[in-house]
Write a protein that binds this DNA or RNA. Structure first.
Length: 210
DNA sequence: GTAGGGATTGACT
DNA sequence: GTCAATCCCTACT
């Protein structure tokens, strides 16, 4: 069990924060038991200068967490059926967040398999942002939770930070705007990294991940 | 009030 | 490779 993640590591820069989150462990208490995943793929989204960010058009009820203090969960609902989870970055008042795109299950594998019975391989359990959120049971009611708090039902731990030599970057997945900004980061070769898919209208670029 | 589309996934050809 | 599922948010009338 590693210590809680240092909130200051998320406060100075969202791109740096995204890279620092690679290898960190997100641990959630679910109705089936506690599940922990080590983050292997993330994407950075920032403020008003990033057309792909939800915060681009200003603060709304949905994206308010992005404008708050670092280290809080921003959970949103997409495509009428899926949830995606972010961790807020930058100080209170500066909008930014890191989308948690994929992770590898650290514990408990049995619980994880119960929660995602359709996953064919263990590497698929949290391979993709909606799968990760589903595995950890992250839903609307978790929006705004402080994950740097030992009493929180969802906690962020130091885990096993990624070796910087194995970190790769490329364009973000599925975004319609700013598809050339290389703010997706992943651990090279990790089997839980999700496949790259260009966003609508985006040119094919970067090839496959991993 | 209402239309258009989305930081996706799983099933199917 | 293609496509449907399905609801909330945002923008615009």
């Amino acid at each position: 069990m590693t210590p809680l993640f240092d909130r200051a590591e998320l406060a100075d820069d969202v791109v740096e924060g995204a890279v620092r989150l690679l290898g960190a462990v997100l641990e959630a208490d679910t109705p089936d038991g506690t599940v922990a995943v080590r983050l292997v793929e993330v994407e950075a989204y920032r403020g008003a200068d990033d057309p792909a960010a939800h915060s681009y058009r200003g603060r709304t009820a949905r994206n308010a967490v992005m404008f708050g203090p670092p280290g809080h969960l921003y959970v949103y609902f997409v495509y009428g059926m899926h949830f995606c989870a972010n961790i807020s970055c930058l100080p209170d008042g500066e909008p930014a967040a890191v989308l948690l795109r994929a992770g590898e299950v650290v514990s408990d594998l049995g619980v994880a398999r119960v929660r995602r019975p359709t996953a064919r391989r263990d590497a698929d359990l949290a391979k993709g942002p909606a799968r990760l959120a589903s595995l950890l049971g992250l839903r609307r009611e978790h929006n705004g939770l402080d994950v740097i708090d030992p009493t929180s039902p969802v906690r962020l731990r130091v885990g096993t930070p990624a070796d910087p030599a194995t970190v790769r970057s490329g364009p973000r997945v599925g975004v319609t705007a700013a598809h050339t900004t290389p703010w997706r980061f992943w651990i090279d070769g990790n089997p839980a990294v999700s496949p790259y898919r260009p966003g609508r209208g985006a040119p094919v670029f970067g090839g496959r991940a991993g």
